[in-house]
Each structure stands twice: as structure tokens, then as C-alpha cells.
């Protein structure tokens, strides 16, 4: 791939991201998912965990924000291809020279970026309404963790979207997938509370490694553990992007062969 093609692709991704952002920003379902629900979770957690002391506040802020990131990924990125199908624009999108996968990356970039508002709003709630003094223990590590989290979530979204399109039966479980990931990823409580058999499941989720990196860097953890979480996020991202490339190819071949692109 030469530089000109790279520049073209980057421009396409950014253009899609901008359009998706503009569309999403007034959508009340999305506003609920990335803003209201994480705020309510933060409010609940701040009251429930008040006795654990001020050091725990940053854990709640980051954890509540992570719930918004996952809900956004599940419901918005998960439907990023189906949404086009529902609005009748999928055939056109498949027909344009820009690869569908690039378009979905752009949409996921906007969605995940937008979901970060959940963390910012939880922070503002803790500081402005509850009056807590909240600070990040390792700011540089936190910024890198946040950037890698965005990459890992976008990559995870690249798998969920085609899986939902090709398997409507799986998508019916979409609502039921929200809380299990909150639990297994240790967003708001350590996974040590869970039964031992569930630990390997947590390790298989990029959301767990994202939460690890974010919590450790915000609360002040061992640098080695943070680096390991970064490595796991990068490894998962690569694996997921590879799987996604296969899924997109299968999906498009299947859709073109069956000529049922817009049908459930």
C-alpha cells in the first residue's frame, strides 16, 4: 500500500467518522447510552461505595466511564452495519470503491470517541456535584491506556458488527450481553470477587485488559502490570482485526451470492 492510498483511506475514515459523529450527537438513544446511563451508574456507585474512602472515587469514575464505552460499543458499533441495512443505504455503501471495512472503522472511531464522554461526565459528577478531589495518579500512562483502549474497542467493534449482521440470532442476545461484560471486565469491582472458573473468560476480553490499564494508571499501580495490559490490548486488537478481515470478506461474498444484502 503506497502513501497516496494510505492518505486516501485515512481521509475516508475521518470523513465517515465526522458524518457518524454528526448523526449520533442528536440521537437520544445514543445520548442515553453514552451519557445518561454511565452517569446514573456513577451516581449509584458513588453512593454505594462512599464508605470505601476518597481513594476509591477515581476507580468509580473510570469504571463508570468504561460501562459507557462498552454499552456504546455493543449497541452503536454493534449495529453499525445493520443501521445501514435498516435505512436502506447498505447496498450503496457496499457498491462504493471505499472498502466497507474502512467505513465501519470510521463509524467505530466516531462511536468509541463519542463514548469517552461517559468518563468525562462521571469525572464532572464526582468533582462538581460530590465535591471530591479527583486526580489521575499516572497521567502519561493514563493517556496511553486511553488511546490503546480506543484502538482495542474499535477492533472489537469490527468483529461484533459483522457477527450481528450474519447471525440475527446472536443479535437477539444483545441486551443480555451488556452486564456480563461489566462483571467479567472488572469495571466497578475486582474480578477476584467472582468464582475462579470465570477468570479465564475475563482474560479473553479486551475490555478486561482495557479496564486493568485504565484503573492501574489512574489509581497508581505497578508499571509492569500496565505495560502487560497494553501488550494484551495490542495483541487482541491485531487478532480481532485479522478475524474481522475474514468476517467482512465472508459477509460480502455471502451477501452478493445470496443477493440478500438488505434482508434480515
Amino acid at each position: 500500500m503506497n502513501t497516496a492510498t494510505l492518505r486516501q483511506n485515512a481521509r475516508a475514515v475521518l470523513a465517515v467518522a465526522e458524518m457518524s459523529f454528526r448523526q449520533n450527537v442528536m440521537d437520544l438513544f445514543i445520548i442515553f447510552t453514552v451519557l445518561i446511563q454511565p452517569l446514573l451508574v456513577a451516581l449509584l456507585a458513588l453512593w454505594m461505595l462512599a464508605d470505601k474512602g476518597p481513594d476509591y472515587i477515581i476507580f468509580v469514575v473510570v469504571g463508570s466511564g468504561m460501562t459507557g464505552l462498552w454499552s456504546g460499543l455493543l449497541f452503536i458499533c454493534g449495529n453499525s452495519i445493520n443501521a445501514e441495512r435498516w435505512s436502506g443505504t447498505l447496498e450503496t455503501m457496499v457498491g462504493v470503491p471505499t472498502p466497507l471495512a474502512l467505513i465501519v472503522i470510521g463509524k467505530n472511531l466516531a462511536n468509541v470517541g463519542q463514548s469517552l464522554v461517559s468518563m468525562a461526565s462521571s469525572y464532572l459528577l464526582a468533582v462538581l456535584i460530590f465535591g471530591y478531589d479527583v486526580h489521575i495518579a499516572m497521567p502519561l500512562h493514563f493517556i496511553v491506556s486511553l488511546a490503546l483502549t480506543v484502538v482495542a474497542f474499535i477492533s472489537f467493534g469490527m468483529i461484533i458488527a459483522p457477527v450481528f449482521v450474519m447471525n440475527p440470532g446472536v443479535q437477539q442476545f444483545q441486551n443480555a450481553m451488556e452486564f456480563p461484560v461489566f462483571i467479567l471486565s472488572g469495571f466497578l469491582f475486582p474480578i477476584a470477587l467472582l468464582p475462579g472458573w470465570s477468570t479465564p473468560l475475563s482474560y479473553l476480553l479486551p475490555t478486561y485488559w482495557a479496564a486493568q490499564a485504565m484503573h492501574l494508571s489512574s489509581s497508581g499501580g505497578a508499571a509492569g502490570e500496565i505495560f502487560f495490559a497494553w501488550g494484551m490490548m495490542l495483541a487482541f486488537s491485531l487478532v480481532y482485526l485479522f478475524i474481522a478481515s475474514i468476517l467482512f470478506r465472508v459477509m460480502l461474498v455471502k451477501a452478493r451470492t445470496d443477493a440478500t444484502l438488505d434482508m434480515e
Binding site: A176, F179, F189
Partner: peptide
């Protein structure tokens, strides 16, 4: 099954573990 059994179960587990973590 997803909306009336699994979703409530996972919600119940999440808030119970959060509560156990708190108190």
C-alpha cells in the same frame, strides 16, 4: 430467554457483586 431471563440475571449479579464490593 435473552430479555426476560439472561438480562435480569446478569443485572442481578452485577449489582449484587457491586454491593458486596461496597459493604
Amino acid at each position: 430467554l435473552a430479555s426476560k431471563i439472561l438480562m435480569p440475571l446478569s443485572q442481578l449479579l452485577f449489582f449484587t457483586f457491586l454491593g458486596i464490593s461496597a459493604t
